[in-house]
């Protein structure tokens, strides 16, 4: 960056922020500061068009961009009892749940769907970081079990997109018990001889990393995603030293042998099709013949309407 861009850029940005921008139309990239128009950002799968920073993407938008022509069927998740511990911190747990439901328009932190990608039938589950940090409680456990059962029943591969701060503390020990529960789900898929693919997205931490998110037949991560058991802050407090640059990021984990691949979100769909078809003993997909995925920007528009 030369002196002129250093000098001019902030001015342009401050000009933008001073203007009354209608909410949700523009998003500022947290990495490079570029202002991105919502339609353009959605079409780029919430990846910054300037610096390739991967921002969070809702499970619905992800599925639209994953499944052929954006069509998928939701898999029903058995509903657990709400607030099993009658948990209360500064707020009651049901109030936090309601606020998250209102903010996301979703019932809980995981969405399960079935459909085809590149004419290959799959079952997919995606975690929603916007819903109470994607935290894993009874519902997420039930969602994974439902996804696994569905995959086994239909003899399809299971793809899981993880994103979570960890366990849902408000469900106490029952959230911890989702570690073995989701592990059973993974074993159901594996016992049936079906591929279980994990795509780790930013951030995947705690009990989620230490259960289903690290048990994939193939482990793929999105660029720069934070993936860890204990977070960097906790570690710095424990060992009292600064951590190296890029510590616990996807590329760092790849270097340390913890992942198979780090893949850009825009290439993910094609890569999943290739891998799944090989693992399922299917002939290669005929490239030109494949139906395209859906367009998240039209989906996002629908959701807002």
């Amino acid at each position: 960056m030369n002196w002129i861009s250093n000098y001019v850029r902030p001015k342009i940005n401050s000009l933008f922020s001073r203007r009354e921008v209608p909410e949700n139309l523009w998003t500022k990239c947290p990495e490079c500061g570029t202002m991105l128009f919502h339609r353009e950002l959605a079409d780029n799968l919430n990846v910054c068009t300037n610096c390739d920073h991967h921002m969070a993407i809702s499970p619905r938008a992800r599925f639209t961009a994953l499944f052929d022509t954006g069509i998928f069927t939701e898999v029903k998740v058995p509903e657990p009892i709400t607030d099993p511990l009658h948990f209360r911190d500064q707020k009651r747990y049901p109030e936090r749940l309601k606020a998250a439901q209102k903010a996301t328009g979703e019932k809980e932190a995981m969405l399960v769907a079935e459909g085809e990608i590149g004419r290959t039938p799959v079952v997919a589950a995606a975690q929603d970081f916007a819903f109470m940090a994607g935290s894993m409680g009874m519902y997420v456990g039930n969602a994974l079990i439902a996804a696994a059962e569905r995959a086994v029943k239909l003899k399809r591969p299971l793809i899981v997109f993880s994103a979570a701060g960890g366990a849902r503390m408000q469900e106490g020990i029952l959230s911890l018990m989702q570690m073995p529960r989701t592990t059973v789900a993974v074993q159901m898929v594996k016992d049936a001889g079906l591929p279980y693919i994990v795509v780790l997205t930013h951030p995947t931490t705690g009990g989620v990393t230490a259960s289903y998110a690290m048990l994939g037949d193939v482990q793929i991560a999105e660029p720069n995603a934070l993936i860890c058991f204990a977070g960097p802050r906790v570690i710095e407090q424990t060992i009292r030293e600064k951590l190296p640059e890029g510590f616990q990021r996807a590329e760092y984990l790849l270097d340390h042998g913890m992942l198979d691949r780090v893949t850009h979100r825009k290439q993910l769909r094609d890569e999943l099709i290739v891998i799944i078809r090989m693992l399922m003993n299917q002939p290669p997909a005929v490239k030109g013949d494949l139906p395209p995925p859906g367009s998240p920007s039209s989906e996002a528009a629908e959701a807002k309407a």
Binding site: P180, A230, F247, H256
Partner: peptide, 25 residues
Amino acid sequence: AYPGKGAEERGQSEAIAQSTAKCLA
């Protein structure tokens, strides 16, 4: 589990996940 640099680099989460999976198998 120990929250340390080396522990993370050597796959603390994977080790825990595999140990739980082994218990179940």
